[in-house]
């Protein structure tokens, strides 16, 4: 209970910090890109025949994660005005003009990009180009929505989520985090992360193509973490808590966070998780549906209970119906006799 009060005080502090830093933000459009991109429904017909809207709504961009990054920090191939119709896709690994606090080096997402490249989601030469194209890139998950408006309710939810990791760092850590804007500002709520991963992993045909376990999402939703999350407990393990955010590797890979050698460390990594997890605790399969081949004991226990329940209830219901039937017939015939 004390921890709760402490937490909420810190939350309101965090909220205050966020709002004050927003007022003092720097101008993102130093190079006046809004001259054109401010025009409503600025449309360009794309090569695939559709129309794309290139309007950047200033108010929305200024509430986004990248509001302090000037346009050409990411769109680096634009060097003239007006720029060509076709411009390169943004490479998230490029360094931008934001400096890392205290390190004073240019900030970039190379660490994340490199981890992603060697993860299961990275481009794999064993897969066809078509298959590789289906894998999520940076922007699939980080949709960098310009409509990332700060709402009071969302803020409290999100900062709750931030504090899960930053609790140990104390208020100083939170101030650094908020003031720098160099790391993620609004980590998504767990339920959003599960939705994001499920957008591909719940798609059976898509997973079959990559030979990925088909019961992952359903299994998660049927077990402790998924159920608690559905009922509103945010500080429960979501996908990336165990499978990492960028270095997602299969359990067979010795570097994987869910490899048999590492799983205990993964369960106990955070103080808000199972910090005292034992090796045996960590072997409990948390979201696979048991099958007779890979997990026979739980499989047969489950079926034992299904048969026990069905059998018992069938007998009890039959007894009730027969009892009621006899009473009803007797009551009817007695009335008739009168």
């Amino acid at each position: 209970m004390l921890a709760m009060i402490y937490r909420s005080t810190r939350l309101s502090l965090l909220g205050m910090l966020l709002t004050t830093t927003l007022l003092g933000q720097q101008q993102a459009d130093a190079e006046n890109c809004y001259l054109c991109h401010d025009l409503p429904m600025l449309g360009v017909s794309s090569t695939d025949g559709g129309m794309r809207n290139f309007e950047v709504i200033a108010g929305d961009y200024e509430h986004s994660t990248h509001r302090n990054v000037i346009c050409r920090d990411c769109h680096t191939d634009i060097n003239e005005f007006p720029h060509p119709e076709e411009v390169q896709k943004v490479d998230c690994g490029k360094a931008c003009h934001i400096t890392k606090p205290f390190a004073l080096t240019g900030y970039s997402h190379t660490d994340q990009r490199d981890s992603h490249a060697i993860s299961s989601h990275g481009q794999n030469p064993k897969h066809s180009d078509e298959q590789n194209a289906k894998k999520p890139d940076c922007k699939y998950c980080h949709d960098n929505s310009f409509r990332n408006e700060i709402l009071e309710d969302d803020l409290s939810k999100h900062s709750d989520h931030c504090l899960r990791c930053h609790e140990g760092e104390g208020l100083a850590g939170v101030i650094l985090h908020v003031s720098s804007h160099s790391e993620h500002r609004s980590a998504s709520a767990s339920i959003r992360i599960v939705e994001l991963c499920s957008s591909c992993h719940a798609d059976q045909s898509r997973m079959q193509e990559f030979d990925v376990n088909l019961t992952q999402v359903a299994g998660y939703e049927n077990h402790f973490h998924g159920k608690a999350l559905k009922r509103g407990l945010d500080n429960v393990a979501n996908c990336v808590d165990c499978h990492r955010n960028h270095l997602n590797l299969p359990a067979t890979d010795p570097n994987s966070s869910i490899h048999a050698n590492n799983i205990q460390m993964t369960c106990s990594a955070n103080t808000y998780c199972h910090s005292n997890a034992t090796a045996r605790f960590s072997t409990a399969a948390i979201h696979s549906e048991p099958t007779p081949a890979d997990n026979p004991i739980p499989f047969f226990v489950e079926w034992g209970f299904i048969l026990l329940t069905a059998g018992t209830m069938a007998f009890l219901l039959a007894h009730i119906l027969l009892d009621f039937g006899r009473w009803a017939v007797d009551a009817y015939t007695i009335r008739r006799k009168r």
Binding site: H223, F224, H274, N276, A277, T278, R280, F281, S282, T283, A284, A285, P290, N295, I297, P298, V301, E302, F305, I306, L308, T309, T312, M313
Partner: peptide, 26 residues
């Protein structure tokens, strides 16, 4: 669960999960 895992193998957590849920319905 962590305390019991010192005495029992991890599969007992799964069995307990199934048994608790199914016996509750019965």
């Amino acid at each position: 669960p962590v305390e019991f895992s010192r005495l029992l193998p991890g599969v007992f957590i799964q069995i307990a999960y199934i048994a608790h849920s199914d016996e509750a319905l019965l």
